[in-house]
Structures are given as C-alpha cells and as structure tokens.
Design a protein around this nucleic acid. Sequence first.
DNA 1: CGATTGACGTACG
DNA 2: TCGTACGCCAATC
Length: 113
Amino acid sequence: MQKEGDFFEMVWQVVRLIPKGRVTSYGAIAKYLGSARSSRMVGWAMNASHNVTPKMPAQRVVNRNGVLTGKNFFSNPMEMQLLLESEGIEIKDDQIQNFEKIFWDPSIELMIE
DNA sequence: CGATTGACGTACG
DNA sequence: TCGTACGCCAATC
C-alpha cells in the first residue's frame, strides 16, 4: 500500500542497518538508492521518520560534512550528540570527529554485487 | 494549480 | 580555496 513511499522506506531501511558507532551521509544513502542528487529527498524521508516505527537511529545520519545538520529536528538538539557520543562517536562543535573513519557507506558495506 | 521551501550535494566563477 | 548558483523530487503554502 505505501508504495508511494518506497523511496522513504528504502531510506529508513538503510538507516536501520547502520551499525552502532558508525554514521552515514544523506548523499551516500541517496546514491545507494540510485539518485545521488536526490539527497534532499533523504532529508525529507528523515523528516517523515518521526511518524514511523520503530524509531530509527537518525542521529547516525549526517550531511557529507559530518555535521549534525538535523539535530534541530530532534526532540532536543543535544540529544542527537549525546546519542552519538554514547555510541563512542566523538563530536566537537556539532561536527563528528574521525568522520571518515566511522563513515558507513551502504553501497560498500551492503556490497552491491 | 503554481510558487516556494527543504535534515544536501555538485558544479561553476 | 572559498562563495554562490543550480539541480532533485516531494510536500507545504
């Protein structure tokens, strides 16, 4: 039935697959879905994620800069950082440290054959 | 129904 | 190298 939300569903599914202590970017997810330039749609999908269950670790999704751009969309902006820090991710000034090291690329980790 | 915005990213100057 | 403009697609005004 929710076929009109296939794109959103895919985004949510990928986000749920993000391992603990790892993060990914909107562009990576969009690229994995086949539309690297549709990164905005990923953001929209996350915005709709508030109405989806189970709640996905949206805190693990950041922009390509490694900055917590969507922290303002959480119940409490600092909650996003706290959640990431709780997973072992180091954050400084809303920016993820060692972003390249903990970066989780679905198109690579999920291994598209 | 048309125009604007939006949790981004890439291209161009 | 940094700043600005444009593009994607969908939802909202």
